[in-house]
Design a protein around this nucleic acid. Sequence first.
DNA 1: TTTGATTGACTGAGCGATCACTCGGTAGAT
DNA 2: ATCTACCGAGTGATCGCTCAGTCAATCAAA
Lengths: 212, 212
Amino acid sequence: MRKVRTYSTDIDLVQERRAQIVQTAVELIVKRGYNRTNTRELATALGMSTGGLYHWIGSKDDILYLIVNFTSDLTQGLLDNCARCGGGTVTQKLKESIKIYFSGVEEFRNFHNFINHVMLSLSANDRRIVYQNESRIVDYFEGLLDEGVKKGEFREIDCKCIAHNIVAIANAWANRGWYLKRYYTIDKYTSEETDNLLAQLTGVPTASVRSR
Amino acid sequence: MRKVRTYSTDIDLVQERRAQIVQTAVELIVKRGYNRTNTRELATALGMSTGGLYHWIGSKDDILYLIVNFTSDLTQGLLDNCARCGGGTVTQKLKESIKIYFSGVEEFRNFHNFINHVMLSLSANDRRIVYQNESRIVDYFEGLLDEGVKKGEFREIDCKCIAHNIVAIANAWANRGWYLKRYYTIDKYTSEETDNLLAQLTGVPTASVRSR
DNA sequence: TTTGATTGACTGAGCGATCACTCGGTAGAT
DNA sequence: ATCTACCGAGTGATCGCTCAGTCAATCAAA
């Protein structure tokens, strides 16, 4: 956790203001791109002056860092929810986790699009945070799939690959929303993809297909 | 096709220089991001001066447009290759098309990452080009899947959804290459994902799984 | 209760730097 | 002599960031 300069000593207020900055900055950046979002506009959108903005942060790049960190917290929260979700079988756990993660992507679509957009502009350190973050998600699903295979609920599959697919397809809801939203709601998309996945994991009767 | 200013009248030379500009610009932008790639550096990398650069293009934004258009041509070329590929069954055609498209993503990874990065900065018109482009790819695979279902090679599936998945998973090789390249080569990834897909499409024997 | 001092969030004009783009000029080919 | 690819110092505009200053809130002494 890097230090970000502030002239305030009120820790709570700093956190509150930075949360506002992160929220507003993400909205603006996703709308207009990072370079076209200048500090003047951002300050105005926050109901501040540029000087006021720099009371809470040290530089424009700090905003990237704060957003990356905030995103990291968001996904950690989602994973915690996933880990807590019940269900006796691994299949049920997987279904619920997917539901939680997919609706998380929908809820924080702006943040996903933001990360996508600024990835190349991030410092090496900030990029590492994003990587760790994404890896954690894949690891979680990989663990679930592994468990399912061990317990005989799923057939033998490349768990790493399929875990990656789950995450890639979830992220696609943010990245490729312009396409998907023409045809699906997030609920329809989630259930459709869950079905697709389970067909892969458990297999479906070949005979009934061939006989059609 | 928008007009891009040039002071030259030699159409062939314009095209050649612009191809060089596109190639070099993509490499630089993917390395450093769009705003940090200034015209001086780009010109230097091209062995030109800034003035020389503006002999061939009218503005920095024109470069975005040229790259977007170039990308569009690239994918059109890939789709043409796909359409031309033989094989008696739809399954074989699908396998070959996936191979062509996936290796295309690998070959033009820079372009994919570029589009990802600048999407939010694109003008409405340029963005429309990207959308049309991506839609064409999904449509191609959707058509193949439809054909497969009609001919009874695949079970009844949501072709649009699965076509989208193919594209999303292919693009993931570019977007999420930092993760995937730790564990897969493009060939391994392609064959793994092809197997996964066919398991979805044709179904796999449930019995053998259950009996394990 | 009044008053004077102090604090700290916030202001906004302005500075320095950068950057996209121009334009008068040059050198080599025809 | 003309043409044209190319040069590079210069220009105007933008943008990140600063800093001297404002003002309302807080507090302590009178």
